[in-house]
Amino acid sequence: MHEYPITLKIIEIAEAHARKENASRVVKVNLVVGDYSGFIGESISMYFNHISEGTLCEGAQIAIRRVVPQLKCKSCGEYFTRRPFSFECPHCGEEGGPTEIGKEFYIESIEVQ
């Protein structure tokens, strides 16, 4: 449900860029999805195949690059992946804070013909 409207938006953006290039079809959409973006890549792929019918994206492949969230230690400045129920830095034991790494949600590029 949650991914349906956002997949429509992805197709809309890809089509707009393809039209600008006078392309007849989109063959691939390269999408970047952070784990904290709130969107599930597999779910977007599933919707994409159905919704793209009749659009310039019909039959296109959707390639999703996942980004694992990183915290930044407030003391030593190292970046790290958090463990469940903890924000502790594995390097120095101090606390880490959130960063923008893992919140990505954008179309990196499209491939057209």
Binding site: F105, Y106, I107, S109, I110, Q113
Partner: peptide, 17 residues
């Protein structure tokens, strides 16, 4: 009939609108 594939950089955030 296969035309050439061209890669276009988009870099557009889905939430922009």
């Amino acid at each position: 009939c296969m035309s050439e594939t061209k890669k276009i950089e988009v870099m557009e955030n889905i939430h922009d609108e």
